[in-house]
Design a protein around this nucleic acid. Structure first.
Lengths: 255, 255
DNA sequence: CGGATGATTCGGTGCTCACCGAAATGTTAT
DNA sequence: ATAACATTTCGGTGAGCACCGAATCATCCG
């Protein structure tokens, strides 16, 4: 069918974002749980998600179909497996922001093991491609205090910060950093303070992983600070000891 | 009931953000329409929203109850009226991001007047407290080209940009700018390119309104560029003429 | 006071959709 | 080939919820 400029414009003009359709994807307990699980930045199989969400495999299939069709998830099929992950950093960031705005719901804790696990999650965990939890928040705070980041029209990298990054061996403008915008912060749902996300957050996470300052649990989102990491975080950033290990008490809120 | 430190921590640990509950608020066509309407940054009465969304007043009441209880909307009651608005800038920003991620839905256009209205909306409109549409995107682009903004670890204000702001009479660190973070961009759902949001976007919008570079339609989100504005935008920023009036053709995509 | 107006409560209706189980499909392992 | 496994298709069921209209409540105005 022939379409002239006017018709093409009409077409463009006559569109509106279907917010409800997108929200409907997340409005289901099970689908929301799947998305939160995938916020670890990893790739899961349909079966793993079925067990995690405690629903039948057939139900999971339907949910994944919707989420993929809606553009929230990317999928990759290998043999009889279906691997899914979040579609991209934008998706992850929006989910994080949404989670920060969401009300809180009590979660049952049945055993000491579960309690310890949650404690570890609160201390340090992955948030897609960066560090969240008390450790992530402490990083953002200390970097601000030290003048590596500044709050001027937002959180930005200072000259000192750029220098510090270079000293660490993180190039201040790489291919992955250039196209992805922002020193961003997102509200941490455990500590309710901001932590670093965006390209800078991702770069720091990768760097810390490479140097084995932190290690990631293969099955969960939990991060542990290694002995090397403890030293590095303390010496290079002056992170207080409380931020470096899961403890019974939380650091006092900023004041 | 007495609660020691351990119990308090347990309580905090045993919470998780209820993403599904929040998303459910937006998963309804009518409620989503209400939120999108409120993205104009204004305050609406229940009756106005009922007419806008084309549902019975009783239905609107129920929706508003849910949205207010969920923390998305703030309400203020005066006499027999119920005024509602978005809860805050965070809410608006998250909604914008979500809308940018959402799929597009064709919207019926029944008359020439409606077509013109949509054209105007695409050209320039309010997005909570800043400028969106082709004009908003053009602003962001031109400011970047002119070196007022730079993409280094994200979009930041350059020294030249700060100077330019000062010359305009916008203080580079005001009370409202300091506490609200970020030179932010959000994906425009009409042009699908980023426009300026965050504190800087809000400051620019206010400034342009005060100088009457633009005027806002009292009933819709449509912005019109005045004759003064045309001159100001062109002289101070070098905005191309295409960006200054609604036209039949769109500016070519960047490249 | 009495009438108009904006908003709310409530009961009832219809539709959507999350869920499961059983059977089927396709893939890897023995 | 046969068996074990991961996922999918399909039919049926039950619960949740968006909607309306009619009646009610509260406020403003003459």
């Amino acid at each position: 069918m022939y379409m002239n400029r006017w018709d093409a414009d009409q077409e463009k003009l006559a569109e509106t974002p279907d917010l409800a359709a997108l929200a409907a994807l997340l409005a289901d307990r099970t689908r929301a749980a799947i998305c939160m699980a995938l916020l670890d930045g990893g790739t899961w199989t349909a079966g793993e998600l079925a067990e995690y969400a405690a629903v039948a495999p057939s139900t999971t299939t339907e949910h994944l179909n919707l989420l993929v069709a809606g553009g929230l998830l990317a999928e990759e099929r290998q043999g009889r497996r279906r691997y899914v992950r979040l579609a991209g950093p934008d998706t992850a960031e929006t989910l994080e922001n949404l989670a920060g705005l969401a009300p809180y719901r009590p979660v049952p804790i049945r055993s000491l093991a579960e309690a310890n696990q949650r404690r570890a999650l609160h201390h340090a965990r992955t948030c897609y491609d960066h560090i969240a939890g008390a450790l992530g928040c402490a990083l953002a705070e200390v970097m601000t205090e030290r003048g590596l980041l500044a709050r001027e029209y937002g959180l930005v990298l200072t000259a000192a910060g750029a220098h510090w990054l270079a000293a660490l061996g993180i190039p201040d403008t790489g291919p992955s950093l250039a196209h992805r915008a922002h020193v961003r912060t997102c509200l941490d749902w455990t500590v309710r303070r901001p932590h670093l996300s965006g390209a800078l957050g991702a770069a720091l996470y990768r760097h810390a992983l490479e140097r084995r300052w932190i290690v990631k649990s293969p099955t969960t989102r939990i991060l542990s600070v290694t002995e090397t990491g403890r030293t590095a975080f303390r010496d290079r950033l002056g992170l207080p000891d409380e931020a470096l290990s899961p403890s019974l008490t939380f650091p006092a809120p900023r004041g």
